[in-house]
């Protein structure tokens, strides 16, 4: 019963809150739809924290998503032990980068009074959760190797079952506690997205890759339309 609540109901609720809330906030409060950069106020730790964090967590997230969406390809990528080791070490490097990065970000927020000034309570919650999430991710990676392999046969079918509305929590309910915490925190963070600065994830400016550089707008003609 608890398992159904945690691994079926909660993920659906979290996804619904995350998606609906994010779209709602986007439509109603564009102005706040960013992360609040504090690079102007503190730039020494920010460089190390932010680059290590983002360069670590972005590929990690993409790899997780790829594991959910294209498990066959991901399985083929580590079909022999040697390739598995390579994938694992690469993943662990990214994970440690993210952990060190988020640790630095947490540290600078704690010690710099200027950065603390621009920190909201939600920022603390999100930052702490992210730190915990990455920490547990690394506990799984190091304590329960080889995640690259079992991920595709535990978390992936579970996520697939959720996506096809045929929930099968049994894929994950027998896993150790650390796994469960990692899974649940992931959904919790997703649910927190519309209530925090995490919305900046969907503002990634892809269109800059092709937009023309100079923008000239006729406000009058636009208004007349």
């Amino acid at each position: 019963m608890l398992n159904v609540l945690l691994f079926v109901v909660f993920p659906y609720v979290a996804l619904a809150i995350g998606i609906v809330g994010t779209i709602y906030r986007y439509l109603t409060n564009q102005y706040s739809f960013t992360s609040l950069s504090s690079q102007l106020l503190e730039n020494d730790w920010q460089f190390w924290g932010s680059t290590l964090w983002h360069y670590g967590i972005l590929p990690t997230t993409v790899i997780h998503l790829a594991g959910f969406t294209v498990p066959k390809i991901m399985a083929a990528l580590h079909s022999t032990p040697e390739m598995l080791y390579l994938a694992e070490v690469a993943g662990k490097i990214l994970g440690i980068m993210a952990l060190v990065g988020v640790g630095i970000l947490l540290y600078r927020r704690l010690v710099s009074s200027k950065v603390r000034t621009v920190t909201s309570p939600v920022d603390w919650i999100v930052l702490a959760l992210l730190f915990g999430q990455v920490l547990f991710g690394l506990i799984l990676a190091f304590g329960y190797r080889w995640g690259a392999a079992w991920f595709l046969h535990t978390a992936t079918p579970w996520m697939a079952s959720l996506a096809t509305f045929q929930p099968a929590p049994q894929y994950v309910t027998a896993l150790p506690l650390a796994h469960k915490i990692h899974f649940l925190t992931g959904f919790l963070l997703f649910a927190l997205m519309p209530f925090s600065r995490l919305v900046h994830i969907v503002t990634f400016p892809t269109s800059y890759a092709w937009r023309r550089l100079q923008l000239v707008i006729w406000t009058r003609r636009k208004a007349a339309q």
Binding site: T203, P205, S207, Y208, R211, L213, Q214, L215, V216, I217, W218, T219, R220
Partner: peptide, 15 residues
């Protein structure tokens, strides 16, 4: 500034 803005938020009013 207009050219560098990743979000395309900066613009020149033609008027």
């Amino acid at each position: 500034c207009v050219a560098a803005c990743p979000s395309g938020a900066i613009y020149k009013r033609a008027e």
